[in-house]
Simulated assay, not measured.
Amino acid sequence: MEQRISFVTLGVRDLVASRRFYVDGLRWVPELEVEGEVLMFRAGPLLVLSLWDRGHFEREVGTLADTTGILPITLAHNVSTPELVDAVLAEARAAGASEVAEGVQREWGGYTGYFADPDGFRWEVAWNPGPVGQLVFPPVADTT
């Protein structure tokens, strides 16, 4: 098996609310939309984020765990400066993010904050100056 991820699929309670947040609020453009069932976004060159209605998700994947508290997964969006962390967090808040943890300087040298989508999935917005951070950041276009 190749070392890569092709899809990240999240089972969501209210696909309409998720659409409103991601499409109307964050201005993401869907690659595929099946009303009442699934919403898919290109999230990278070889990566798709799929938001799947929980009922359809459960019928295919199996019974979902009943949990409380924060789900044990985060999604991350890396940016090129600490200031952009704050700007993306403000954009998420304006889009209706249910919770926003302001950006803070981390002991490992980066600057990060979090927001939650309508289902409580946590998104980390990060400026990571280290080598691993550079692995996931899009290359800067040469303007010379």
Rank of each mutant, 00 (worst) to 15 (best):
A76L: 07
F115H: 03
A95L: 03
W108N: 06
A65Q: 04
T68M: 09
I70K: 03
D53A: 13
L84K: 08
V85K: 00
G96R: 08
L89Q: 06
A94P: 00
A87E: 10
E91P: 02
P72H: 11
E58C: 03
E107R: 13
T112E: 15
Y111T: 09
F115Y: 13
A101W: 15
T112Q: 15
L46D: 15
D66I: 14
H77L: 05
E102M: 05
A76I: 02
I73R: 10
A95S: 08
E60H: 15
Y114R: 10
A65I: 05
S98Y: 04
R93C: 04
V100A: 03
L71E: 09
L89K: 02
Y114Q: 13
T81D: 03
V79I: 10
R59Q: 11
D86N: 03
E60V: 07
T68P: 00
E60W: 06
Y111D: 11
A94T: 12
L47Y: 13
L64F: 06
A65E: 13
E107Y: 04
A65H: 12
L71V: 12
Y114N: 09
Q105C: 06
E58T: 14
H56S: 15
G110Q: 04
T81E: 07
T74F: 01
A95Y: 01
G113I: 07
E107C: 05
T63A: 15
L84T: 07
G96M: 02
R106W: 01
E60G: 15
P45L: 12
G110H: 04
V100Y: 06
Y114V: 07
A97Y: 05
L49D: 07
R42P: 00
T67K: 02
I73T: 15
L47S: 07
V48C: 06
G109R: 12
A97I: 13
A95I: 02
G109T: 07
G113Q: 03
V48I: 13
T112D: 14
I70S: 08
E58L: 06
G69W: 02
T68S: 12
T112M: 11
D66T: 14
V48T: 13
G55D: 14
A92I: 08
W52V: 05
G110C: 05
V88C: 00
G44I: 06
E83I: 00
G109D: 06
E83Y: 00
A65P: 10
V79W: 08
A94E: 13
R106K: 14
G103T: 10
G96N: 08
A90I: 02
N78F: 15
E83P: 00
A43Y: 01
L84M: 10
L49M: 14
T68D: 05
L71A: 13
